[in-house]
Nucleic acid binder design. Sequence first.
DNA 1: CCTCCGTTGACCGTATCGGTCAATACAGAT
DNA 2: ATCTGTATTGACCGATACGGTCAACGGAGG
Lengths: 201, 201
Amino acid sequence: MNDKFFDLPEEKQTRIINAAYKVFSENVYKKAPMSEIAEAGDISKALLFHYFTNKKELYMYLWGKAIERTRKATEESQVANTTDFFEMLRRSLLAKCSLMREYPYLYSFSVKAYYEQEETIKESIRDSFQSASNQSKTMILSTIDFSVFRDDIDVRLLYQELLWASDGYLREMTNSGALDPDRIENDYLRMIEQWRKVYLK
Amino acid sequence: MNDKFFDLPEEKQTRIINAAYKVFSENVYKKAPMSEIAEAGDISKALLFHYFTNKKELYMYLWGKAIERTRKATEESQVANTTDFFEMLRRSLLAKCSLMREYPYLYSFSVKAYYEQEETIKESIRDSFQSASNQSKTMILSTIDFSVFRDDIDVRLLYQELLWASDGYLREMTNSGALDPDRIENDYLRMIEQWRKVYLK
DNA sequence: CCTCCGTTGACCGTATCGGTCAATACAGAT
DNA sequence: ATCTGTATTGACCGATACGGTCAACGGAGG
């Protein structure tokens, strides 16, 4: 890619990047047109190709950035630095929200990328995602104090369930176009409070 | 459309329909090619056009069928015929599973259709979905006995949350390609049992 | 052998794709 | 005002994919 991209005013950089995240999160790689990205980012297609020499390079740049920013947000929110399950969940959702404020479609892009079928993309991506996901999962299972949960529930099932619920909520917000991180954050906190009430001893 | 479609052996009919549901559930209307549907259904594109005279007609047929089958499955599972919240949830998830056995992608098609942006499609669809969804929601809120819930929880939030959780689970199954209704049904039942334990008085 | 009809490969005009390039717009220096 | 260098673009290219059509093929029944 062309490093001069980073000399652009920051607003313009993120505008372009977010346009790309959006289009790639809504379409499979093959059906995500560069022209649509350019239009959404309010620049010409030629300029887009000027900065990211071709489609795959843009895609891989977005992927690398997504990985990096996710890692950073997770670290900054101190997600791993607690043994309280719900506190960890809270921090991780707050991290997601803060990430969403700057890159609204980064998360849905990551999910879409994980299931990408295009051969050339697949191999470059799947491993790094898988390893990160597995790593965080084992980290959670080893540091969390599970003794505080009610004895009659299946914690592993619960964990999945809560992730799905928060994910489903986020998806609904995304789909309906009302992506308001503040409101989402607030709703997240309420949901967690409720869970805390019923699932602890 | 050409009524001779219904003279085809049933296996072939559902094979074609499911191919169409799949492609339309994975792509926006405009980017869902008839050729891809034909290929997935293992027939020629020309034959597909022979039965459904054009793309929109096929889409609208699928939509109507989705509405109808959903209504039927809901009715057959007696979803509305109980005042127990979790029992109703259980029945409605079982209905979803039984529907999924015959038309694996019908549900994700319906969701996708609801958010369709194509102008000509939008108007023909959104109303019927909205009304059905609203109707079921008010039905639930009026027949369910909410007094059995713990007093310290927000039932409306809970309702959404459980729907999201079951939805997220279903989506993960769909995405990973392991769409096994029996396993899903089993997992659903376990999740519901857990919920029943913690959310009731 | 004929007829009928389900089925198809090949085709059409058009739109869209990824990508290129010469030309413009424009800012700053002289 | 002119020059220079760079950010930006409209127009274009060949290739491909699109929705839709149609003449022809093939096999079953008479």
